[in-house]
């Protein structure tokens, strides 16, 4: 029932009769109730992450002591835990570097080629254009599992097992990114820009690189973040094809940590988890404006 009440508050005029109501710190009583509900949900969202960070800084003895679960303040043993982790053969920093390399390369390919594809669809007319775009849209409905066995066999037949190539190159074809960038291009460019560039003697490819890309930086940044997060979090792909530990990405080390769960000390386990997600959290907090605003990119239609 509450949601309907909230729907009503969309109307700017509805609460005008309450204008004179008593306020505390600028919010009315009902706003304080809503505020605390929001705080409660924020707590649920953060609490597990906070527990992970806190426990990563505590020793296993501290974690296991009676009532140890009540501690919500970080301790000082993070680096000891990381030491324990690396000493037990978990090359978490190697995994970190590998994840960065794969995610950066994938992100670059994904964003550049998605923009090129989206621009090809928006800026030009050619045969089978709408049919090809329909194919692209349809792929968004296909479950990843459907191609899983075929992908594994393909990688094996191409002798690409235990390499990063099958994790990086396919980023060129990201239907979702193309779809969002196409929406953005349609809303923000006029063909006069392209005409003007042509009159100035710019090649078509040059126009894309020197005009279209620079003026779309906000949309590209948003897509880059999503694409980075996606590549960083990819688990099933590396799980199927990577065998050598030198090539392991962070999710694979997490997978391995999980199998050794019972032998390893808990502080170290939490420390490993923190290392695997901390870069994402930092990037997210730094670029949250792009991300939170970017979720709506696809619906920009003016």
């Amino acid at each position: 029932m509450r949601k309907t009440d909230q729907g009503a508050t969309l109307k700017p005029t509805l609460h005008r009769k309450n204008e004179g109501a008593h306020r505390f710190l600028g919010m009315r009583a009902n706003e304080w109730v809503i505020f605390f509900v929001c705080v409660f949900f924020a707590f649920i969202c953060i609490f597990p992450v906070w527990l992970m960070i806190v426990n990563a800084t505590r020793t296993t003895t501290q974690i296991n002591q009676v009532g140890g679960f009540l501690a919500l303040i970080p301790s000082t043993h993070f680096f000891e835990n990381v030491q324990t982790l690396t000493n037990s053969g978990f090359d978490i920093f190697g995994g970190f570097v590998n994840s960065v390399i794969i995610a950066v390369l994938s992100t670059f390919l994904c964003v550049y080629f998605s923009a090129l594809t989206a621009y090809g669809f928006v800026g030009y007319n050619f045969k089978f254009k709408s049919a090809l775009f329909a194919v692209l849209l349809a792929t968004m409905l296909i479950p990843g599992q459907l191609g899983m066995i075929g992908w594994y066999q393909l990688v094996s037949d191409l002798y690409l097992m235990d390499t990063w190539i099958p994790l990086i190159i396919p980023s060129i074809a990201s239907a979702t990114t193309v779809f969002f960038l196409k929406q953005y291009f349609e809303a923000s460019f006029s063909k006069e820009i392209i005409e003007a560039a042509r009159i100035d003697g710019s090649s078509e490819f040059g126009t894309f690189n020197r005009i279209i890309l620079p003026i779309s930086v906000p949309a590209l940044a948003t897509m880059a973040i999503f694409s980075f997060v996606y590549a960083w979090n990819n688990y099933m792909g590396p799980l199927m094809i990577l065998n050598s530990e030198e090539l392991f990405t962070l999710p694979l080390w997490i997978n391995k940590l999980n199998t050794f769960n019972h032998d390893i000390d808990y502080g170290a386990l939490y420390a490993g988890l923190v290392i695997s997600v901390l870069p994402l959290i930092l990037i997210y907090l730094a670029f949250s404006k792009f991300i939170v605003g970017g979720l709506t990119l696809g619906s920009v239609k003016e």
């Binding site: 992450v49 979090n233 688990y235 962070l250 997490i254 997978n255 997600v277 959290i281």
Partner: peptide, 8 residues
């Protein structure tokens, strides 16, 4: 929570 690695 949406951006955090599912495996982690």
């Amino acid at each position: 929570p949406n951006i955090i690695t599912a495996a982690s």
